[in-house]
């Protein structure tokens, strides 16, 4: 056994043994790799991508004008030549309407959640990081919103603001800020108590730097997952608002609204009537499954 002088040699050997196994990858690269192995998530992601492309390119892809109906061809069944998915109660082509309707529905599902994600995370991180009275003010305010069921809240706000696309977006955003802020706050509180935040504070870093470098990076991921799981809820709520006449106005195609207007025809053409509902169902399911996949992909152990 040698001693004293061998410490540096020991350190050198320390590296030599452990270097090989894994090539260093960033956190997100690892998440992506894991997500790619998850067939369900990738399927959902593919489907959602397809739906978005379809919605985006609707003006060029759609075979007919979604607003132009032919009265003589009202409520044509699925499989009618020229109208492969049938027509609605005003004789408008269902396929074209579903493609165009996706634009509104997806925007109304994603935009409120995105705005709420930004605002809610901001509020939650500030409340969680600074604590004290600031936390009390922010969190107690969000608690007030929590007292009402989401659907009721959305309807109430929309009702107060009046119908219309912009107001629907506002009301849905307001509905989703409190839950996101709540989640962001609780994650921030736990991250803030970890030693690495203390270590960074011990170097003399200010609050803003601490949040930017050390807190946000560890909070955004989990909150993002939570937000993706809200997209489906938001889509359904948006559809609900339109269904009640509080969202977009006819004749603009939107899945929720289409579901409403086709409701009367359910006994005449049941299969055509459920199509918008099916689209809502598939899209929200995909968002949910993708969110679950993302959650397990991001759950990387030590």
């Amino acid at each position: 056994m040698t001693n004293a002088s061998s410490t540096t040699a020991a350190a050198a050997a320390a590296q030599a043994t452990v270097v090989a196994p894994l090539r260093s990858r960033g956190y997100w690269a690892t998440v992506w790799l894991r997500l790619r192995r998850d067939k369900v998530s990738m399927g959902c992601a593919g489907l959602l991508l397809g739906l978005m492309l379809m919605a985006l390119l609707a003006p060029w892809l759609a075979p007919h004008d979604p607003a132009q109906g032919v009265m003589s061809q009202r409520l044509a069944p699925i499989g009618t030549p020229g109208h492969w998915l049938g027509t609605d109660e005003l004789g408008r082509d269902m396929l074209s309407r579903l493609m165009h309707g996706g634009r509104m529905s997806l925007v109304m599902g994603l935009l409120p959640v995105f705005i709420a994600f930004v605002v809610g995370t901001g509020l939650g991180v500030v409340a969680g990081f600074f604590g004290g009275w600031l936390n009390s003010v922010i969190m107690r305010t969000t608690d007030v919103f929590f007292a009402f069921p989401a659907v009721l809240l959305a309807i109430a706000i929309s009702g107060a603001l009046g119908a219309g696309f912009a107001n629907a977006i506002i009301s849905l955003t307001l509905v989703f800020i409190p839950p996101i802020a709540r989640v962001a706050e609780s994650i921030t509180t736990s991250v803030r108590n970890l030693d690495f935040v203390d270590a960074a504070r011990a170097t003399g870093a200010g609050a803003f730097t601490l949040i930017r470098v050390h807190v946000l990076g560890n909070v955004l991921g989990p909150v993002f997952i939570y937000a993706t799981s809200l997209v489906s809820v938001c889509m359904i709520l948006a559809a609900g608002l339109s269904f009640l006449g509080l969202g977009v106005k006819p004749p603009v195609p939107e899945w929720g609204l289409m579901l409403n207007t086709l409701r009367q025809s359910i006994y005449l053409q049941p299969w055509v009537s459920v199509l918008p509902g099916l689209m809502i169902f598939i899209t929200s399911l995909c968002f949910n499954l993708l969110s679950d996949g993302l959650r397990s992909a991001m759950d990387i152990k030590r």
């Binding site: 030693d195 690495f196 170097t203 560890n218």
Partner: peptide, 27 residues
């Protein structure tokens, strides 16, 4: 300066080793 007991908890899992060490001097 201070070194903590839990070597894992005292490093930000989202930062590379380089960023973690270079953080203090930049402050």
């Amino acid at each position: 300066q201070m070194v903590f007991q839990d070597s894992y908890a005292s490093l930000n899992p989202r930062l590379t080793i380089e960023d973690s060490i270079a953080f203090g001097p930049q402050i």
